[in-house]
Simulated assay, not measured.
Amino acid sequence: MTLADWIEQLPFLNQLTADEKRRLETDAQLVEVPSHTKLFSPGDECGAFLLVIDGSVRVQMVGDNGREIVLYRVESGQTCVLTTACLLSHEAYNAEALTEEKTTAIALPARAFQEFLATSNGFRDLVFASYGQRISSLVLLVEEVAFKRIDVRLAQFIARHKDSNGVVKKTHYDLAVELGSAREVISRQLKEFEKKGWIELHRGKLIVKKPEDLKSFISHHCD
């Protein structure tokens, strides 16, 4: 599909006028990025605003000690709040982003982004609605990391991400990154879950054996 086709079909661009869609077609470009490609790193300048059409981009921070934490993912119909913040403040990125699968997006250069923001009510609403939603989710992330027990957060993650067979295809390291913890802490907690019979650990994955016990544990500590 061409850029013009995507612009006409994407629901989140419906609020743009016909003239604004034509302008977007002229100023933007359609980009396809392979899986596992780094899109930006801390210190990079932001050159374009991205509207993800298909795929997934993981945005994360890496501490001085090498620990990583996933801040959020940008998926179909979404924009990156850090990119928006950098374009608005004219500051460099303070995190990194990588594609988790082949990703297609509309890239709008910084100059055109500023012009659209100043002249298009529909575009401005789209940008700030996405911005507000993402800020709310980041506040919840900070609250979880700062105040919620890691065993409860781990149990919640497992419960949310197990497939229909009870399988979670994540390594201990993957789980540590997702939850902003140390691999050793996650491994120790998983062993505790396994001792209780809630899960079964395998290389690169785990299997939930007692979902009701896991659910009961979560409910008890979240009431």
Rank of each mutant, 00 (worst) to 15 (best):
N165H: 15
R22Q: 15
K38W: 12
S35V: 04
I186T: 03
I218N: 02
L82C: 12
N65W: 06
P42Y: 04
V127W: 00
A28G: 05
D64T: 08
L140K: 14
I158G: 06
T104W: 09
I207A: 12
L214C: 02
D19I: 15
E25M: 05
L154D: 02
N14D: 06
N65I: 01
R203V: 15
T17M: 11
S41K: 15
G180C: 14
K195W: 05
A155L: 09
A176G: 05
R134Y: 01
V70H: 13
E178G: 04
K215W: 08
S216F: 05
V57R: 00
N14A: 09
E144M: 10
L82S: 15
Q78I: 02
D223T: 14
V59P: 03
Q78R: 01
F217K: 03
L141T: 04
A107H: 07
S216P: 00
D54F: 01
I7N: 02
V152F: 11
I199H: 11
H172S: 11
F157S: 04
C46L: 02
Q78H: 03
S216G: 03
R67P: 10
G197V: 11
L3Q: 05
V57E: 02
D5T: 04
G47F: 07
S164P: 09
L30K: 10
R58N: 14
A18L: 13
V57I: 13
F113Y: 07
C222L: 09
T119H: 13
G204C: 02
S181N: 09
R188P: 07
G66A: 06
Y93M: 15
L3S: 08
H221G: 08
N121S: 03
E100V: 04
L39S: 06
N165T: 14
L206V: 09
V81P: 03
A95Y: 07
F49E: 05
F116E: 03
E25P: 00
R58A: 15
L71H: 13
I106V: 07
H172Q: 11
M1E: 00
G166L: 03
V33G: 00
L179I: 07
D213P: 03
S164L: 07
E8H: 11
K170R: 14
K215G: 09
Q189N: 03
T104L: 08
V185P: 00
A176Q: 03
L190W: 01
A28D: 09
Y93I: 10
I150V: 14
E144T: 12
I106W: 06
E96R: 12
F40V: 14
V177G: 02
F217N: 01
V139R: 14
P211I: 04
M1F: 01
L3R: 05
R124K: 08
A110M: 11
K195V: 10
H202L: 15
D163P: 12
S164D: 14
G180W: 13
R124G: 01
Y131I: 04
S136L: 12
S136A: 13
N65K: 02
S130W: 03
A110F: 06
A110I: 03
R203F: 15
T99D: 07
I186V: 11
A48H: 03
Q60P: 04
L175C: 00
V74P: 00
T79N: 01
N121Y: 06
Q114M: 14
D64H: 10
